[in-house]
Design a protein around this nucleic acid. Structure first.
Lengths: 343, 343
DNA sequence: TTGTAGGCGTTATCAA
DNA sequence: TTGATAACGCCTACAA
């Protein structure tokens, strides 16, 4: 019992021996090759089951250069949006016989690079990535692309063309709709708590914000626009600044829901009545926004649609690996404003 | 550009050729073997970088029978508890050079079995699993154990010994403390919304509930104990039953936070004042419980401690693969009651 | 300190 | 329809 090393597993050679067949035939039978006699195939499957045979994916992958494995890198799996996307992707790929290796970068560029290396070393058939907020250099993905491994970026995506497929939300429209909604419900003094402009997300949501303001001829107060990491603490700090002056906002658009929640809590603490004194719109439709009181108006991103679309394009190119590398324009997933009690 | 198949990658042979050395030396240099001249090692590393060499994990794993990869199966990554555990495990393993393959069973036993097969086929060095609520037959893990691959169960674990390491929360104490707390804050008519008794979690939390009730000589109303899947809908249905009679509870202990939230919302809908008319205690300290109004008293499970402990025992046995398979008693992670406004 | 040679388990090619 | 053989890229005795 002690000192027991890995036990030798049964291989196709064992099946071959038991059945007086060649390993090649076993391999073919196991892989549903066309030119195998039905009887042989069923014999092989039976014997495989009996011996408890399990294919060795390393040997198979090494030889065939296909791993039926897709890598995925996300900043954090705990974010509701990503958790949903991941689930959809995993279930989708599973149907086509592909496995998914899920990795977290913890929003660290270094970690993202390391994970990319590792996934390449594992020779994944494709890579899906939602980059960190701080990824501006995407060269660590080059190795995969050079090798002909398709790369799919979603959510946080490169700002310039890399030869990879891009799936993103309609952030411009999201920012525009959120802001327009605030204006339509009566706000005239609107602040925007946004993320770092290194990310496409916040660039576009900010543009949407500006567009809506300009269209309604409402002056934009530069001091009321924050570009910072979207943590609860930063949101509170922004709120403090916003409400220490004489003129205070009557509407706030935050680029994520955590910030919206923090803003709402801060507003309640200083005695504001939301939505009467202040209206708030968040982004992402995190489950918490519907539970908090008052519930928060937010922008639904339809993570399941992201997942479905990613699987669709990924499987398409994996099944037809040698069709022209279509320089696809970015795929845009529509958003939708969810109106709640905070506006 | 079109029809481009996978490009041939550089291998240790290419490095060997470029440096007029043998592949064996390259391999040793890359793996930090003791008997390689420093100069040689640095030459190799330099050339490897220059050629953009990346080790092929399949080839290396096939030969060495080590993958430096650990598999993980959880019901859902979106559950706060699991997301936290996963993050801790991934970061912990990363320090030791191990990778983590994260898989979701979606609480489906079939999927759990398939994933186990796949992870075995990939010859992971170890497997970590939080089983589905419905897993009563654990034989799909046998293959790994027979093969000498260590298996670690956490949270939802087998009820009988399998030769695997078990890490679980102190569910008995959690149930006991939650119930005692309700009693100490004045409740005498206490209901329990629990999960299926096929799971160790709900067996133990229920035992804790009963123990506390008996210790305080409070009669247990069997009609007020629900064993069902812990969905929001089921919780609402239970609430409906509880509050349709003449005698209604003044305290509710639910075995997860989603049920507690659903119970709280139902209570508010029928005009009850929580905590005055009804007190509620949940389980897990989901972030939503601190945001909802009133905030919900719940049991903290310290997911990060789960993760740390798992990494600790896992690395220990992976680094010393041939030490006696210690039939470890289950490892118990302490819990803590978080008092909030709902009690 | 480095080189030689064989093999990990599977699949692809060619031949039968 | 099946078999023989080589090769995928790497690691590890053993020899030098």
């Amino acid at each position: 019992m002690a000192n027991e090393k890995k036990v030798q597993q049964n291989t196709i050679l064992d099946i071959a021996e038991a059945l007086k067949l060649s390993p090649a035939t076993i391999s073919r039978a196991l892989n549903n090759h066309p030119h195998v006699k039905e009887k042989t195939k069923s014999d092989v499957l039976k014997m495989a089951a009996q011996l408890g045979y399990r294919r060795n994916n390393m040997a198979s992958g090494l030889r065939s250069n296909k791993t039926y494995t897709v890598g995925l890198i996300v900043p954090r799996i705990s974010m509701f949006f990503h958790a949903e996307v991941i689930t959809t992707i995993q279930n989708g790929l599973h149907k086509y016989g592909y496995n998914l290796i899920i990795c977290q970068s913890n929003d660290s560029v270094t970690m993202e690079k390391e994970l990319t290396e590792i996934l390449f070393s594992s020779r994944v058939d494709a890579l899906i990535a939602a980059c960190t907020l701080f990824t501006t250099d995407f060269s660590h993905f080059d190795k995969l692309l050079e090798n002909g491994t398709p790369v799919y970026f979603y959510d946080r995506v490169p700002l310039h063309d890399l030869g990879a497929t891009i799936i993103k939300g309609d952030d411009f429209r999201g920012g525009y709709m959120a802001t327009s909604h605030l204006i339509e419900t009566g706000c005239r003094k609107i602040a925007h708590i946004s993320g770092p402009l290194t990310s496409n997300l916040y660039q576009n949501r900010s543009s949407g914000f500006i567009k809506a303001m300009e269209q309604h001829q409402i002056p934009v107060n530069e001091d009321w626009i924050f570009h910072q990491e979207l943590t609860q603490n930063n949101a509170r700090e922004a709120m403090r600044k916003l409400f220490e002056g004489d003129i205070v906002p009557d509407g706030i658009f935050t680029d994520n829901d955590s910030s919206a929640i923090a803003a709402l809590e801060y507003a309640k603490e200083i005695g504001l009545n939301v939505p009467v004194d202040l209206k708030i719109v968040g982004y992402s439709n995190d489950p918490r926004t519907s539970i908090i009181n008052p519930s928060i108006t937010t922008v639904e991103q339809f993570p399941a649609d992201f997942g479905k679309k990613i699987v669709e394009v990924l499987i398409d190119s994996l099944k037809n690996p040698n069709h022209e590398i279509t320089k696809t324009a970015p795929i845009i997933i529509p958003i939708q404003l969810i109106r709640r009690m905070s506006t």
